[in-house]
């Protein structure tokens, strides 16, 4: 039990510290790397909660794919560090307002659970005993929430097709490899064997 608490405080501390560093780091690439650290540690927190499936998905999807693309983009940008700092004071009130709203909402949630424990209790016991949470999620997702799940899939598909059509450029001058054509080609069509008599050429 002591060990679990120690691990929790370690993960929680690193998560918060990394999250602070995301906005405090001068170099945007460092910011993204700290963001990845924060993701990774929150995956650890999920596992500590017993939600190992969500924890692994967080690592596979966010850390393994989304953050890589993010890092990709940030690395390729030509960033002027001085210019980046300039608007800081201008955006500070907006950021502070968003942060304040989030804080109040969190306080409301935890306050209501503290006053009426039954509110929190319903959320905790979503799984039956003896069922791994992978199985529990599967059972819910593919039965009760099947249509919502499919709708989410379709929305993602539409977004994907949208992204492709927006970025696709037809370049007629680009030379592309057509493997089918290459394989179909026979020596008779392209090669011609000629007898070259000396001193005359072709």
């Amino acid at each position: 039990m002591i060990l679990a608490q120690l691990v929790f405080y370690l993960l929680a501390f690193v998560t918060v510290a990394a999250a602070v560093m995301v906005i405090a780091a001068r170099n945007p690439v460092h910011s993204v790397l700290f963001l990845i650290l924060a993701f990774f540690n929150s995956a650890g927190l999920f596992i500590l909660l017993g939600a190992e499936f969500i924890g692994m998905l967080l690592v596979v999807v966010y850390v393994g794919a989304v953050a890589v693309l993010f890092l990709f983009v940030v690395m390729m940008l030509d960033i002027n560090f001085v210019q980046l700092r300039e608007g800081f004071l201008q955006y500070l009130p907006v950021g502070a307002l968003v942060g304040l709203i989030l804080l109040v909402e969190l306080a409301l949630v935890f306050g209501s659970i503290a006053m009426e424990p039954a509110l929190g209790g319903a959320a905790v016991s979503a799984t039956e005993a003896g069922v791994t949470n992978t199985e529990a999620i599967g059972r819910l997702l593919y039965t009760d929430y099947f249509y919502l799940f499919q709708a989410a899939g379709i929305i993602l598909l539409v977004a994907m097709i949208g992204a492709m059509t927006l970025t696709m450029r037809h370049r007629p001058d680009a030379r592309r490899q057509d493997i089918g054509r290459q394989v179909r080609r026979r020596p008779g069509e392209t090669l011609e064997v000629r007898k070259v008599p000396p001193r005359t050429g072709i």
Partner: peptide, 9 residues
């Protein structure tokens, strides 16, 4: 999933 996560990292 753990193995897959490690290899994707």
């Amino acid at each position: 999933l753990y193995l897959f996560a490690v290899s994707s990292l």
